[in-house]
Deep mutational scan, measured.
Amino acid sequence: MAEQVALSRTQVCGILREELFQGDAFHQSDTHIFIIMGASGDLAKKKIYPTIWWLFRDGLLPENTFIVGYARSRLTVADIRKQSEPFFKATPEEKLKLEDFFARNSYVAGQYDDAASYQRLNSHMNALHLGSQANRLFYLALPPTVYEAVTKNIHESCMSQIGWNRIIVEKPFGRDLQSSDRLSNHISSLFREDQIYRIDHYLGKEMVQNLMVLRFANRIFGPIWNRDNIACVILTFKEPFGTEGRGGYFDEFGIIRDVMQNHLLQMLCLVAMEKPASTNSDDVRDEKVKVLKCISEVQANNVVLGQYVGNPDGEGEATKGYLDDPTVPRGSTTATFAAVVLYVENERWDGVPFILRCGKALNERKAEVRLQFHDVAGDIFHQQCKRNELVIRVQPNEAVYTKMMTKKPGMFFNPEESELDLTYGNRYKNVKLPDAYERLILDVFCGSQMHFVRSDELREAWRIFTPLLHQIELEKPKPIPYIYGSRGPTEADELMKRVGFQYEGTYKWVNP
């Protein structure tokens, strides 16, 4: 592979701008107003304001973009700056750019259920340069409990009458099928589907988006991507930290609602779906819905739930269990780990287990898709061969690698495990991989909904998990304890083995 010439960040961002501006969906010269509902909250200060700053800094926003914060707290732009700027990672050389960014910011205080507050917000936006005809993007960085009041008031008082209007809704989209349907029906009564952007930030990850290209742009994968060759698929999300004093919020939802029903299920769809007619948003989402419709409700015998306990040999936070978090209700049975087996009941995947695993306070930070292939028929190497695996590593250190057998150097035919490896950090030294939120917010500006969740996708996802969630809430089974920093409950490994996964433990990928 030829040595790549190092590029400056300015040059890299210039390439990104060229890609972005050559499309006809990006209205570079139009006025846009980006409204952050819930501007005083954690999500706004840690993710949304920093993301908008990065896009502005790199010249990736339309030229005439204004940012308006809205929340109940009586704040000023200076207050917003004070709480969000520490997350910007701005350099001293960017000081003038930073001043320009905050000059485009404003803030309006108001209630979430008060019509007069929204009329005041609308008047404020109209007073901005060309504000009355601007395109408006409303980001709901809010708890779902206020979605209905907020969307109703936005629709009645704050819509642009000339430009387009788009609304970005953060997960969780309800707690179960019934609450999700209620919320979807409410929002759909106010906005068209092409105006609604239900954001799952995992769909903005580079390697998640790469799944489609790997599958449908490489001839070698087509013939082997089926039940005849693939023994099982494992989708993993692991965090090495616990709730760390923020367990009160987590306890309301648990690990299945927080990660599995959305992030992991979306990745499953991209692995299992048929080739779409095109890369058009609805063509892709149509195929994802077909996959979900082929999955039956989760069966309790295919589920393992766990909850982390303190590690007596650990240090600091590792010595504390979930129930030691003062914000967690006493005696909570909320799971911090889950392993679930699903089956896609169609011709391509009949009988292939899709194993979804996620948890907190585990032994490493990792998100990946792992396809394990069947054993080689007619073994001539005296059971020395391990199964081939194709691994798409989402985070950290984005990579695609194939675990395969090669001859060990020497005189004899002794096979050993090795890999074919594409590590993004080595291959793409001159490429700026956008943060997931950067990519998705740019998608909203461009009107691309491919990486957002459609209402029928959402409904099918909740259909699969709601009976299990209701059973857990009714019966309150005690989750299996696992030690902070471990791989999780051993019962999860036993479940995976029972459905056909072979864990060798003899080879570990190392970032080159």
Results as ranks from 00 to 15, higher is better:
S8L: 04
R9N: 15
T10H: 09
Q11V: 15
G14S: 15
G14C: 14
R17M: 11
E18Q: 14
L20D: 10
F21E: 14
Q22H: 15
Q22F: 13
G23W: 11
G23L: 11
H27C: 06
H27I: 13
S29R: 15
D30Y: 15
T31W: 12
T31D: 08
T31Y: 11
I33L: 10
I33P: 01
I33Q: 07
F34C: 09
I36F: 00
M37D: 01
G38Y: 03
S40Q: 04
G41S: 00
L43M: 00
K45W: 05
K46F: 03
K47C: 00
Y49R: 04
P50V: 04
L55S: 09
L55P: 02
R57N: 07
R57S: 06
R57W: 02
D58K: 09
D58H: 14
G59C: 06
G59H: 07
G59F: 05
G59D: 08
L61W: 06
N64D: 11
N64S: 10
T65L: 11
G69F: 02
G69Q: 04
Y70E: 00
R74D: 15
D79E: 14
R81Q: 11
S84M: 10
S84F: 08
F87M: 09
F87Y: 15
K89F: 12
A90W: 11
T91P: 09
P92W: 08
E93L: 08
D100P: 02
F101I: 03
F101V: 00
A103W: 09
R104S: 06
N105Q: 10
V108M: 12
A109T: 15
Y112D: 00
D113M: 10
A115E: 14
A115C: 15
A116E: 13
S117N: 15
Y118I: 08
Q119W: 08
L121A: 07
N122K: 13
N122C: 14
N126H: 15
N126Y: 10
A127E: 15
L128M: 14
H129D: 14
S132Q: 15
N135W: 04
N135I: 04
R136H: 12
L137P: 04
F138Q: 03
T145S: 12
V146E: 06
Y147N: 01
Y147F: 10
Y147W: 03
A149Y: 14
I154L: 14
I154H: 03
H155N: 15
E156C: 10
S157T: 12
C158K: 01
I162E: 15
I162F: 15
W164R: 07
I168F: 05
K171N: 01
F173R: 01
F173V: 06
R175A: 09
R175Q: 10
R175S: 11
D176R: 04
Q178R: 13
Q178P: 12
S179F: 03
S179C: 05
R182P: 01
N185G: 12
N185A: 11
H186Q: 12
S188C: 08
R192M: 11
R192E: 09
E193N: 01
D194V: 08
D194S: 14
Q195R: 04
I196H: 01
D200C: 01
L203S: 01
G204T: 00
G204V: 00
K205E: 05
E206M: 08
N218D: 04
N218S: 00
R219P: 09
I220Q: 03
I220R: 01
F221P: 03
G222I: 07
P223C: 08
P223V: 05
P223L: 06
I224E: 06
W225Y: 06
W225M: 05
N226I: 05
D228E: 14
I230W: 00
A231F: 04
C232L: 05
V233T: 00
L235Q: 02
T236Y: 06
T236M: 05
T236D: 08
T236C: 07
F237P: 03
P240C: 09
F241D: 04
R246Y: 01
G247T: 06
G247H: 06
G248P: 02
Y249F: 04
F250D: 03
F250I: 03
E252W: 06
E252F: 07
I255M: 12
I255Y: 02
I255G: 01
I255N: 00
